[in-house]
Write a protein that binds this DNA or RNA. Structure first.
Lengths: 346, 346
DNA sequence: TGTTAGCACTCAGCATAGTCGAGTGCTAAC
DNA sequence: GTTAGCACTCGACTATGCTGAGTGCTAACA
């Protein structure tokens, strides 16, 4: 439908979007002709702009202001006009050098990634650690707390450490616990959590379980430990940087932004959506979306190692975001993190 | 110096502070006489207020506004005038019921505590997990990542799980690692980290180490694992609640607040200070303080189990904070958390 | 001597009115 | 199809005046 834009209209829309991205203020027809070499008079530009408004790409905050792109306008810009140039080698190495991952555990890496992305983009960085169920089993350990209560520590191939408290009916002694964890570590290493779950439920119904008490205990313990979905960890960094953006200069907007960034559940849901996609994804906030993201844009990409533990990282900012700058940052960072995670297990 | 306040001045100061706490606006002499039964005329109150201003307890934002308490005024109020009533049984049980700790691991408890304190107080909750070096050794496990890199998982008596990546010179196989962790778990369980460190450095210089390769490896590994201070984890919750307070209604103040709450390092340093104190502590932000806490007040208390793993929790809010409400909340919550932690290890 | 009433003064907050500039839509001419 | 001209709109800013809450000072009172 929107493809019918002729070249001149495209050029003007592009100019408006880009000027608006850098100025955050409504763009008037004269401003366009002054800043770009279209060899057109303001009046002509006005006509085109009126058409673009008709088509839903622009809107004017009030009669005598310039125009600003709508969400649809940005969408069109991103889909058809934006040229994402690859990063130069220099930029890549500069980016690489921004990160210092050496000797960091996974949690620290996540945090650092968010911080750096935020600093580079001037918006807010979001990083979601690999989903529990998408990780690959490496090791499990049990630590006895008070009577009947066990601390389970689970380590994935990618070095993700998670712990959980479970209730164990029987009072097992340390020796038995050790046997159990040895048994599980031998049986389950290298399987994905999904596979582990399948295996466990299959075995639990098998006959021989009845005859092997240890095996039974091991299975039911690990079932309890690995059953529930662990709430995803999400790292948000650089909220205060984003407050510098003019769209968040009013107290109401600031409050709303902080509330948005504080509601981790919502952010997790949001990042979850791009979990299955490949490459960079862009969400432009609009009223229609089920999640209230109006006024914000989200650029995400996934990272993973060969074994497929998948996490998501990205940058959230105003719709008026410098896409040409942020997209390569997110893209390259995701690749970088993937490579680091692969090195971990090598 | 400030003790020379006569009763009438005290009453008036108290009235001003309390009215200011509830209204957040400068208090005038007439407002005082209207709202309180001092049997004094506004003029008399004015005289007293002028004296109080002279002494540094009050100040006026401009000539013809009412007066607001200075930091010193609040300090005096807290030290000499504030009556902290104990919580009634009902309130205590209501508070207790706000928390749902069952089956939660330590991280979740910390988070939950912050959330609830924030919700109850309408300010921002801060919780700092027990300091690494104040914990008691319970168990250590090693997981091999890539060549030469080990993931160390450390569990304290209170159920705190921490992990770290260390470089190990030798390539140890799984069997050896298991022997090493068994050895360490036998030797170190029940010791505080300080004791562990002392023991390690003592043993490393002992002669017999030379003859026992396994022992040597174990010691040097655990040394590497437990040597550095792990950065403290801090949980901040309810920032957006605090934005509702009138002192943070201007964009500048909002930005500053968010920046303050984002700078975890600073908050950790702040909470660290009260780590060694007993009972509830109150910091009133003033310009003089080395840490920029101007305009904020911080109420903290420590929690611990018998073994002495100590963490700190508290509430940060505007200086104009409802102390009589927040202090009991912080106090009782700290006791509650201590009790929960003790039950963990029972 | 401590307390009070009266009075002139101050000042933030608010509303009103006027100006300016950037921008628009429309029309007519090129 | 493009452009110049023109009347119009409207937000942002400034100046102005008014109001109300509050103050300090002085003089009178108990």
């Amino acid at each position: 439908m929107a493809e019918e834009l002729n070249e001149r209209s495209q050029n003007i829309l592009e100019a408006i979007v880009e000027d608006y991205i850098s100025s955050a203020e409504p763009i008037g027809s004269r401003a366009i002709t002054r800043r770009h070499d279209f060899n057109l008079s303001p009046a002509t530009v006005r006509n085109v702009m009126a058409d673009l408004e008709e088509m839903g790409f622009l809107c004017s905050p009030h009669t005598s202001a310039g125009r600003i792109p709508t969400a649809q306008g940005f969408q069109y810009y991103i889909d058809s006009l934006l040229q994402i140039r690859d990063l130069s080698k220099q930029e890549k190495s500069r980016l690489r050098n921004s990160y210092r991952f050496s000797g960091m555990k996974l949690e620290d890496i996540m945090q650092e990634v968010g911080r750096v992305m935020s600093g580079l983009s001037k918006y807010t960085g979001l990083v979601m650690a690999p989903k529990f169920s998408s990780t690959v089993f490496r090791q499990i350990e049990f630590v006895r707390l008070s009577k009947g209560r066990l601390l389970v520590i689970y380590v994935s191939e990618s070095g993700l450490v998670q712990n959980k408290i479970i209730e164990a009916d029987q009072t097992l002694d340390d020796r038995q616990l050790e046997q159990i964890s040895n048994f599980l570590n031998k049986e389950l290493t290298g399987l994905s959590i999904q596979e582990v779950r399948k295996k466990l439920s299959a075995e639990l119904t098998e006959e021989r379980v009845l005859y092997d008490r240890l095996r039974k205990q091991a299975l039911s313990l690990s079932c309890a430990a690995l059953q529930d979905e662990v709430e995803n960890q999400i790292y948000v960094s650089g909220a205060s940087l984003m407050l510098e953006q003019p769209e968040f200069s009013s107290p109401q907007q600031m409050k709303r932004l902080i509330q948005t960034l504080e509601s981790k559940k919502m952010l997790i849901e949001l990042l979850d959506r791009s979990q299955n996609a490949q490459g960079v994804q862009i969400f432009i906030g609009s009223e229609s979306s089920s999640i209230d993201l109006e006024g914000y844009s989200l650029i995400t990409s996934n990272f993973s190692n060969q074994k497929g533990a998948i996490g998501t990282l990205g940058v959230i900012g105003p719709v008026r975001m410098d896409y040409s700058q942020v997209i390569p940052i997110v893209d390259f960072t995701a690749q970088l993190v993937s490579r680091v995670l692969e090195r971990e297990i090598e």
